[in-house]
């Protein structure tokens, strides 16, 4: 049989497959292709039959000595049908609790990047706080670090005692979710470049630390109000920033500590490891935002805010240390459970 006749014969099926692809690209279904026998399950069965036929044609293209133009066409047709047959995996919300409560804490506990980020962040934070509080060590440190204008603005903001209506709280918590989680995500994204992430982390640590130290000076008005404000949400928010940077650093470090993998492969593996940590960080940011919106600015007594602060610190410690402690026995058991069905199969 000559090639032209072969093509004419096969072309009928190919154009049918194309029409099915058209229909599936629009709606994800085969119903709208215009053929009667393409309704529902029948259409899907027909689609997969035609797809396999096109695959076979492509496989035999070399043997049939099809013209290169036709081979290109077949490549595209098969690719197109392949994209419709194997569709994107949706999110799996049922796996999210596993990620948040099992994978993430274990990863946080065992990841050296978390330790590095935490030490950098809280170390610089404490240093800046000390230098900002004590003006004699480096005179004018706070003014140069944060800026005189910002410091006076900060003072003005906390001169009055905290009081606000519910309206204010709700809108502000929305703003904090947007703003602070945005900073965290930015820190995470820059982690793949390492240096911008570290700079961003260090800058946040120094600026926040200096503000804290400056407000702790005895001669600054509004210091008490400031600390009353930041006490409640401090633990969540500071931990969240450190974790976001740690997740970012995990990806960037993958570029250097490849563990025997190719560099691109190593980045991929480390990025997948970083996702649970980032998810935990985003959760903490959200918790911090609601705390910052509702508890921090409220005229509640300071004791309640302090108790909330202690409680949230305990919660984070429980999350990282207890949930995250490496459990060999548990892992072994889960491996056994996972192994059984494969053995049976």
């Amino acid at each position: 049989m000559n090639v032209a006749k072969l093509l004419e014969k096969r072309r009928v099926q190919w154009s049918e497959l194309e029409r099915l692809c058209d229909a599936m690209e629009m709606r994800g279904r085969t119903d709208k292709s215009g053929f009667k026998h393409h309704q529902g399950a029948q259409g899907i069965a027909r689609f997969s039959t035609l797809y396999r036929a096109a695959c076979a044609d492509l496989a035999l293209a070399d043997t049939y000595q099809l013209p290169p133009g036709t081979v290109t066409y077949l490549h595209r047709l098969v690719a197109r049908a392949h994209n419709q047959l194997y569709r994107a995996n949706k999110f799996e919300p049922q796996s999210w609790s596993t990620i948040i409560f099992e994978t993430a804490p274990q990863q946080i506990f065992s990841d050296p990047c978390v330790r590095v980020a935490t030490i950098v962040f809280f170390g610089l934070f404490a240093l800046a706080m000390y230098l900002g509080r004590n003006d004699t060590l480096i005179p004018g440190f706070a003014d140069r670090m944060v800026g005189t204008e910002q410091l006076s603005q900060l003072e003005d903001a906390y001169e009055a005692p905290l009081a606000g209506s519910l309206d204010h709280y709700v809108s502000m918590s929305g703003f904090y979710i947007m703003h602070n989680t945005g900073i965290g995500l930015r820190c995470f994204a820059y982690g793949i470049l390492l240096i911008p992430c570290l700079i961003s982390l260090a800058y946040n640590a120094l600026a926040l630390g200096t503000m804290f130290g400056y407000m702790a000076r005895p001669d600054v008005v509004g210091g008490d109000n400031f600390f009353e404000f930041v006490t409640a949400h401090g633990p969540f928010e500071l931990t969240a920033i450190a974790l976001a940077a740690a997740a970012g650093l995990r990806i960037g470090i993958g570029l250097f500590y490849t563990g025997g993998l190719a560099r691109t492969e190593s980045i991929r593996v480390n990025a997948l490891k970083a996702v649970p940590v980032m998810a935990a960080s985003a959760l903490l940011f959200t918790l911090a935002a609601f705390t910052e919106g509702f508890i921090s600015p409220s005229p509640l007594p300071y004791v309640i805010k302090a108790v909330w602060s202690v409680f949230s610190s305990g919660l984070i410690s429980f999350y990282i240390v207890v949930l995250g402690f490496p459990r060999e026995a548990g892992e072994f058991a889960s491996q056994l459970q996972a192994g059984e069905p494969t053995d049976a199969a």
Partner: peptide, 19 residues
Amino acid sequence: PISGKRAMLRNLLRIADLA
């Protein structure tokens, strides 16, 4: 096809690519 996790990673990291 792409999965949700991968789509999230590549879209979050766009910031670093635009640097």
